[in-house]
């Protein structure tokens, strides 16, 4: 397996982190270079590609007319799916979504849903009957660690680029008109992921760090500074004070990324 890090390198990574340094020269709380490109798939209602170091994630959005859920008759519907495409890593297998892709999709979904990033009430066409359904499809194209942050960022970038069709209702029928309206976006949630290595927290772990990490913690922060989603992963644990420390760093990092991207 080409993606397997050697034991020597694993040890090196862990020892450096204990001294507050990283193998690629970053500080413990520094992100890799972030590159966001929007509107790259013309057939999609919205799209974006995010490069986080060598991790590459593409997101396309599609908008369809569908039925609202009975407990939210005035709100549009959000569906998030993630594909760990086999070409992205020797560890990804073709086949139905596994627990990793399901977790990835659900963590991204929670960040967008709980922060109320989309103004769902504006997606209502006929209360209780017809609403717009937003599909977010995450496509991981190259896996070099921290798929959660890259996917969450790509999903938001694609939403910001998404156009809703104009429509009018004639005799109870929805008629699509020419022209588009941008999808109404209210909040800009950013997800910040930490790896715990040698009892220290490092931001934005790349693949080799993920292979060394004991546990993972992802926190989604909205632009009002509130936390809106958290997910712990991996077979290790965190001390309570590490969790609170992570929340503070996540807030700073979220602001920093929003500023960098002018969101």
């Amino acid at each position: 397996m080409s993606s397997m890090t050697t034991r020597v390198k694993q040890k090196q990574i862990a020892q450096l982190i204990a001294k507050g340094k990283r193998l690629d020269g970053r500080t413990l709380t520094e992100y890799r270079e972030i590159n966001v490109e929007q509107g790259i798939i013309e057939r999609a209602e919205g799209s974006a590609r995010v490069l986080l170091g060598k991790t590459e994630v593409m997101v396309g959005t599609k908008i369809e007319i569908g039925q609202p859920f009975s407990d939210t008759p005035n709100e549009g519907v959000l569906t998030v799916n993630a594909e760990l495409v086999p070409l992205a890593s020797p560890t990804f297998e073709p086949g139905p979504p596994d627990e990793n892709s399901i977790e990835l999709a659900r963590v991204v979904d929670r960040g967008i849903r709980e922060s109320k990033a989309i103004d769902f009430e504006k997606l209502c066409i006929e209360p209780g009957k017809k609403v717009f359904v937003v599909f977010i499809d995450i496509y991981v194209l190259n896996h070099d660690g921290n798929l959660i942050d890259a996917s969450a960022l790509a999903a938001l970038a694609a939403l910001l680029n998404t156009k809703m069709p104009n429509y009018e209702i004639e005799d109870g029928e929805v008629k699509i008109k020419s022209g588009y309206t941008p999808l109404p976006i209210k909040k800009y949630p950013i997800t910040v992921t930490f790896a715990k290595i040698n009892d220290k927290l490092v931001v934005d772990p790349w693949l080799e760090e993920e292979q060394v990490m004991e546990a993972r913690l992802s926190m989604t922060i909205s632009n009002d500074g509130n936390i809106c989603a958290i997910q712990k992963g991996g077979s290790g644990y965190f001390a309570p004070k590490q969790v609170l420390e992570a929340a503070k760093i996540a807030k700073e990092k979220g602001e920093e990324i929003r500023k960098k991207l002018n969101w």
């Binding site: 958290i230 969790v243 609170l244 929340a247």
Partner: peptide, 30 residues
């Protein structure tokens, strides 16, 4: 929580909390 080792082994959240509220919620859950 693994109480004797004071180690958090599951942490999730959904909804909206400020940092202060989050701290309070974590401590209450513990």
């Amino acid at each position: 929580l693994m109480p004797n080792l004071n180690a958090i082994t599951l942490l999730q959240m959904d909804g909206i909390l400020s940092l202060e509220e989050f701290e309070k919620a974590v401590n209450l859950a513990l």
